[in-house]
Design a binder for these strands. Structure first.
Lengths: 112, 112
DNA sequence: CTCCATACGTAGCATTGCTACCTATCCCGA
DNA sequence: TCGGGATAGGTAGCAATGCTACGTATGGAG
C-alpha cells in the first residue's frame, strides 16, 4: 500500500480500534494491523503522534498505568470521539463512492 | 468532503479522466466533477499543478493549441500513464478494502 | 460595459504520515 | 550469561500534497 494513501483517513481508523473498549497505544497499532489482515501495519512513529493529536483534539482521553514493569497509556473514546468516529465513517463512505466513481471502476468489490 | 481526504488519490482520478481520449486541463477538472456528480470539484489551483506533476513524471504529455482565442494545453496519457492508472486502480481497491475493514463498516455500499 | 465562464498559472501554507532515532523492560534461546 | 526480539513509549525533522489566494487573459451574455 502506498504510504501517503492513508493521509486524512488515519484518525478514523484509530478511533475505530477504541470503539469496543479502551486500549493502550501499542495495542491500538496491533488491533488495526489485525483488523486489516496486516494491510495497515503502522510504524510507532505514526501511531503515537496521532494519538497525541486525537487527545489534544478531545476525541480520546488517556491514563497512565504500569503493567509488568512497563508504563502504558490507556486511551478511550470520549463522547466527541464517538461522534467523530461516526462522522469519519459516513465521510469515508462518501469519499469512497466518489473516488470509485471517478476512477471508473466497478462499484464494489470487483473481487470476482 | 473533507479537503485533505483526497491526498494521495488525486493522480489516479486525473489520469482516469484522460483514459478515453485527450483533454485540456480545464476539461479534466470538469470531467472529474461530472463523473463524481459534483462530489469532487477541484479548485484550479489543485488541478494545474497536479497536471504539471503528472507531466514531469512522464504519465501524460501536453501540447499547446489555441481555440477561440484561448490557449489550451491538451493532455493525453502516455504508455506509462496507462500503466500507472491501472496500478492506481488496483491500489485503490486494496486501500479501500483495508480502510473499510479497519473502520468496521459494511463491505459495501451500506446504502441499504 | 460589466460580469461570468473559460483557461492557464504561481506562491506560500498547513497538514500529515513517515523515517530514523532514542529509552526502557521482559523473556526466550544460545 | 548474554544478545536479541517483542513490548511500550517517545521525539525531531522531512517530504509530499492539496488548498487558499492571488494574477492574467479572452469571449460572450446581459
Amino acid at each position: 500500500m502506498r504510504a501517503e494513501a492513508l493521509k486524512g483517513h488515519l484518525d478514523g481508523l484509530l478511533l475505530a480500534t477504541l470503539e469496543n473498549g479502551p486500549r493502550h497505544g501499542y495495542a491500538v497499532k496491533e488491533a488495526l494491523c489485525e483488523a486489516t489482515d496486516g494491510r495497515i501495519d503502522l510504524p510507532t512513529g505514526t501511531v503515537y503522534p496521532a494519538l497525541h493529536r486525537l487527545e489534544r483534539a478531545g476525541l480520546i482521553t488517556g491514563i497512565w498505568s504500569v503493567v509488568g514493569g512497563r508504563r502504558r497509556r490507556t486511551y478511550q473514546l470520549t463522547q466527541a470521539g464517538h461522534a467523530a468516529l461516526s462522522r469519519e465513517r459516513t465521510g469515508w463512505q462518501e469519499f469512497a463512492t466518489a473516488v470509485t466513481a471517478g476512477l471508473g471502476t466497478r462499484p464494489w468489490p470487483a473481487t470476482s
